[in-house]
Write a protein that binds this DNA or RNA. Structure first.
Length: 759
RNA sequence: GCGCCCGUAGCUCAGCUGGAUAGAGCAUCGGACUUCGAAUCCGCAGGUCGCAGGUUCGAAUCCUGCCGGGCGCGCCA
């Protein structure tokens, strides 16, 4: 899979420097110098083309002997110029000297086969610290994305059951990717596509309905679940429960929740799920009796969505929009067929030549399903995904059905209409985070984008030309294999046997800190790149919750914050005004201090790179490494070079460094949706961890520092609000149900149980 | 059978898109708190980067072929 890059990066200027009065970070300074140096080299005939500042490769060498920063630029240039990299480096260095009148680079040397190693002048890297403090909470943001409008669709789990751990991984990746790209200057919207139409919703409704009819057995079933017993109910399922129904205990709980609704309860009188006429007679809102449109089906997925939204908000995830598939089908709009954008889109594709009707060739077309319109054309409509003019990477191996021979559109048709809708909203890039088990769908979808672009061009859309499969990126999130004590836990919504995301969050939450579960889960998923399969052992996760790397970073922040606080207590606190406007940092003479300053100044680069490569995990690793560098600096100089001393100038200088580090760590944690605690409870003494002073943990103070993140809302309020809005959205889309009597309960972390308990 | 993803320390994973001597965390072992946080630090040990070729100044990274593991290939969603 080749991830697509942003088409253009127009901003070649110094992106991190919004006003001239703000000093640039060392990386930007050096980049600008090298860019000028290549211009000079061109004038002198050394090079034929210059290099833009943002094109200058810079790295922080692992070995201190290789300088503060190093570049392999000359290798790149030598390839084009067919010159010796080392000789080129020698000549470029002379140009760098001329391009650096301020002497930001104290020393530069050519090393190895052509590396240029740089040693920065103190005023250069010190300016980086001031730069951090001046930008404060906005440090790290850039215009790297040049305001491109991006839509990120993620999770989009079918509303037939609670989220499991694999969904959680995709959710965390998508949410954090959105945050990282926003910080890097993209205009990002996020969306969850609710697949609330079709056979699966039919099955969901049927499953719930069976439990509705078996009221006498629900209580026993739920008691089994509440006791955390295996989900297989001792007395089996209700009579007639379908083999391919959803067998999870949450189905019984959902039935319990719906039982009080008179419009739902009267459904229990019917004796057959397939009695279409009977269902139609019962529900004036669903005159066709269509199974996925019955009140019990609709209400069931609404409850599922509410629960999904609650589980997501518990780990700090909200969406800008919940897009209902029903809406695309026009099922909310009453009888007016013109609202059926799915069928409409299929017709447009036919007109543009991208879809065609064709009778079933080998006679395996199914009979029209019960309840569908009896007079269907016997021809299915196929999307021409194999056309030769589709670039090979986006070409499907087979034309796929979008309208069945009985006239019903497929899931694929709805998804096409959905993506056509995305195009009409003016996004320049679409990103769909998908589970890796759907990777076969990717070329098909990219082919669709190609076809839609062409179709829109035919229809006269002036923006259509720009569209092709390249503008759709599909980061694949690999599977999470759930283990318990090293043994795989079977997962499947149909079997009902799975561990939910909410369960895992609960398991890794530590006493006294309600955020810790979300923090730990988020960081765990961010601690590995998306395209590697991972094992998630519940026992290990529980045992290791305190060893989770997230605590390492959070502890780093708490430690930094506590140094600043201690200095204030002693009346030696950092003079913020002075630090920002007239800082004297000459007392920072240790190698570690210079290295930390350069490390911290690199943060905006890390964010921009993570956004560009769609890999939020890079930010997590950067934070871990930055904190490691600070911990080492702090520990090693504990005895000889304390931050706070009687030397006022030195104290102020080191506090400036500490404040800058704290700022970067805080910004990074917030960006990842993780709380940045000012204090953490001391775990050392098991006895004192109860309710004395040590117990006021991160949670209280963390809220102050994370005002912009989803994490600032407590799990409770977040659950309520998001669940409500999701449920509202869902309810809006279900206009033909008895909405007037619908009461979607506020979701709790485990809503069905809670609701049952309340009954 | 065809296609996609992944094989890096005993385990879990990074490796900045082709750069200098492949790095962390767990786990083992040995050290460091009277002070601004020991949820920390310092050290020891641990590797044919799945295997074999190829591309070039240079490959864990790119190309080919094998070997292992995972996942896809419906008028399901």
């Amino acid at each position: 899979m080749t991830p697509c890059r942003p088409m253009s990066d127009n901003s070649t200027a110094c992106i991190m420097n919004p006003s001239a009065t703000v000093p640039a970070g060392p990386v930007d300074t050096v980049r600008a110098i090298f860019a000028r140096a290549t211009q000079i080299a061109v004038e002198q005939g050394v090079l034929t083309t210059s290099v833009a500042a943002r094109e200058v490769p810079l790295e922080r060498p692992k070995d201190a002997k290789h300088g503060d920063l190093a570049t392999n630029l000359c290798f790149v240039l030598a390839k084009a110029a067919k010159a010796n990299p080392r000789a080129l480096a020698e000549r470029l260095c002379a140009c760098v000297r001329q391009a650096d009148p301020d002497g930001a680079i104290a020393k530069l040397e050519v090393a190895g086969p052509g590396f240029v190693n740089l040693f920065l002048a103190p005023h250069c890297w010190q300016a980086g610290l001031v730069n951090i403090l001046q930008h404060a909470d906005t440090f790290g943001q850039s215009r790297s994305g040049a305001g491109q409008r991006v839509l990120i669709e993620f999770v989009s789990a079918n509303p037939t059951g609670p989220l499991h751990v694999g969904h959680g991984r995709g959710a965390v990746l998508g949410d954090t990717l959105a945050a990282v790209m926003r910080a890097a200057g993209f205009a990002v919207s996020t969306e969850y596509y609710i697949n609330n139409v079709g056979n699966q919703i039919n099955k969901l409704g049927e499953s719930v309905w069976h439990w509705l009819r078996a009221a006498d057995r629900r209580a026993a079933a739920l008691a089994v679940w509440a006791a955390d017993q295996p989900v297989a109910f001792p007395d089996g399922f209700p009579n007639g429960f379908p083999d391919d129904g959803y067998r999870g205990a949450y189905i019984a709980a959902t039935a319990q929740q719906l039982a009080d609704d008179p419009a739902i309860a009267r459904c229990a009188a019917l004796t057959s799920w397939t009695d279409t006429a009977g269902w139609a007679a019962l529900d004036r809102h669903n005159p066709t009796g269509r199974a996925d449109n019955r009140a019990v089906s609709v209400r069931a997925w609404q409850l599922m969505i509410a629960r999904i939204a609650a589980d997501l908000s518990q780990i700090g995830i909200r969406f800008d929009k919940w897009q209902s598939e029903r809406t695309l089908h026009g099922l909310d709009g009453g009888l007016d067929d013109s609202h059926d954008r799915v069928s409409l889109c299929a017709q447009r594709l036919v007109q543009a030549g991208w879809a065609y009707p064709q009778p079933a060739t080998d006679g395996d077309a199914p009979a029209p399903a019960a309840g569908s319109s009896e007079v269907g054309p016997s021809q299915a409509v196929f999307f021409a995904g194999t056309r030769e003019d589709i670039p090979k990477a986006f070409r499907d191996s087979k034309d796929r059905v979008i309208v069945r021979s009985d006239g019903r559109p497929t899931y694929f048709a709805a998804d096409i209409a959905y993506h056509d809708d995305k195009l009409s909203r003016g996004f320049t890039h679409l990103i769909n985070v998908l589970g890796a088990d759907h990777h076969g769908y990717v070329p098909r979808l990219k082919g669709v984008l190609h076809a839609l672009g062409d179709m829109r061009r035919c229809e006269g859309d002036p923006n259509a030309q720009a569209w092709s499969g390249e503008r759709l990126e599909v980061p694949l999130v690999q599977m999470v294999a759930l283990l318990r004590d090293g043994k795989p836990v079977p997962m499947g919504k149909r079997s009902g046997e799975f561990v939910t995301l909410a369960d895992v969050v609960e398991e890794v939450t530590t006493v006294g800190n309600p955020h810790s579960g979300a923090d730990a889960v988020r960081f765990t998923f961010l601690s590995r790149k998306a395209d590697a399969q991972i094992d998630f052992d519940l026992e290990v996760a529980r045992r290791a919750s305190l060893d989770n790397p997230v605590y390492y970073v959070q502890y780093g922040h708490a430690r930094l914050a506590s140094v600043l606080a201690r200095a204030r207590e002693l009346g030696k606190g950092l003079d913020a005004q002075k630090a920002v406007h007239s800082a004297d940092l000459t007392a920072l003479t240790l190698d570690a201090e210079r290295e930390l300053a350069i490390f911290a100044a690199d943060y905006p680069e890390v964010v921009a790179r993570a956004a560009r490569s769609r890999e939020p995990h890079q930010v997590a690793y950067y934070l871990r490494d930055l904190c490691a560098a600070f911990h080492a600096y702090y520990s090693q100089n504990k005895a000889t070079a304390r931050v706070i001393s009687d030397d006022v100038a030195c104290t102020q200088a080191r506090l400036t460094l500490v404040a800058a580090l704290a700022q970067v760590v805080r910004n990074g944690l917030i960006l990842l949706g993780i709380t940045a605690p000012e204090r953490m409870a001391n775990l050392a003494g098991p006895s004192e961890a109860d309710d004395d002073g040590a117990a006021d943990t991160t949670a209280d103070t963390a809220a102050d520092t994370t005002a912009d993140t989803a994490a600032d809302t407590t799990a409770d309020t977040a659950a309520d609000t998001t669940a409500d809005t999701a449920a509202d959205t869902a309810a809006d889309t279900a206009a033909d149900t008895a909405a007037d009597t619908a009461v979607v309960p506020a979701a709790n972390s485990r809503p069905p149980i809670a609701a049952v308990a309340a009954c």
